[in-house]
């Protein structure tokens, strides 16, 4: 990853794929309030994705708009991190994914808001408020599940164990990017440690650090996700909706 275009595209893809996964929860949440909350967060992520992809399209200068970028690229051209494309799993896995994503997006958007690129600064200023809400919501559930029943503790610890290795990719150093992801690590670690401790959960020891999303080398899941997301758009080339 390097340069403003790649960086913006990658962040836009993170938000888009996260929104797609969260949207899958609609009508399936454990309670009605949570159905609303997950749709709400999906909507925020989608809103950020639209701003970021629109800007990426402008930076590229090839006339691609948000929909061209979302619906007409294949999985090898997507730049999202692997974390967001992982399947939803149970509610614990979804909360683990959202918690780590939000704990990363909040300092990221905050740094962007104070950065030198006016468009990214404006997007960061808007998105960081939403990320703070996502982080709060996910933290609460991580604590409720971690420190709830024996069953929920077991499931939440499983979820953290499953998802944790994918966090590594988020901090791959890129000094050329508007915000070097490596600089976000301390902030992220502090947030995560406090919440996991309170939730009576532990971080797994792991040597496995899967990555490749930023280079378009994804898990086997993304192609299925895109097949579903893009099916209608691709079936009617050039149509307006």
């Amino acid at each position: 990853m390097s340069g403003v275009f790649d960086f913006t595209l990658a962040l836009g893809d993170d938000a888009l794929i996260a929104a797609q996964r969260l949207g899958e929860w609609t009508t399936r949440a454990p309670e009605m309030e949570e159905d609303i909350a997950l749709a709400n967060i999906a909507l925020d992520q989608l809103g950020a994705a639209r701003l970021l992809l629109t800007y990426a399209g402008e930076l590229e200068g090839a006339g691609r708009d948000e929909d061209d970028l979302a619906f007409l690229r294949d999985d090898r051209e997507f730049r999202n991190c692997l974390l967001v494309e992982l399947p939803n799993g149970d509610f614990g896995v979804t909360m683990a994914k959202l918690f780590f994503l939000a704990a990363w997006q909040l300092p990221l958007y905050t740094a962007l808001a104070g950065g030198g690129d006016d468009r990214l600064a404006a997007i960061g200023a808007k998105a960081r408020k939403e990320s703070a809400y996502h982080l709060d919501h996910a933290s609460l559930w991580v604590k409720r599940l971690g420190d709830g029943t024996d069953e929920s503790h077991r499931r939440m610890q499983d979820a953290v164990d499953q998802v944790w290795p994918y966090v590594h990719e988020l901090f791959t150093s890129d000094p050329a990017a508007p915000v070097d992801p490596a600089t976000l690590r301390a902030d992220f670690d502090a947030t995560v440690a406090a919440v996991l401790d309170e939730a009576t959960l532990t971080r797994p020891e792991t040597r496995w650090t899967p990555g490749g999303g930023r280079d378009g080398v994804h898990t086997e899941q993304l192609s299925y996700l895109l097949a579903e997301m893009q099916v209608l758009h691709r079936a009617h080339p050039g149509a307006s909706w």
């Binding site: 949440a29 309670e31 949570e34 509610f91 409720r144 599940l145 709830g148 069953e151």
Partner: peptide, 8 residues
């Protein structure tokens, strides 16, 4: 499916 979450 959500019962364990509500119980927690």
């Amino acid at each position: 499916d959500g019962a364990w979450v509500r119980e927690a």
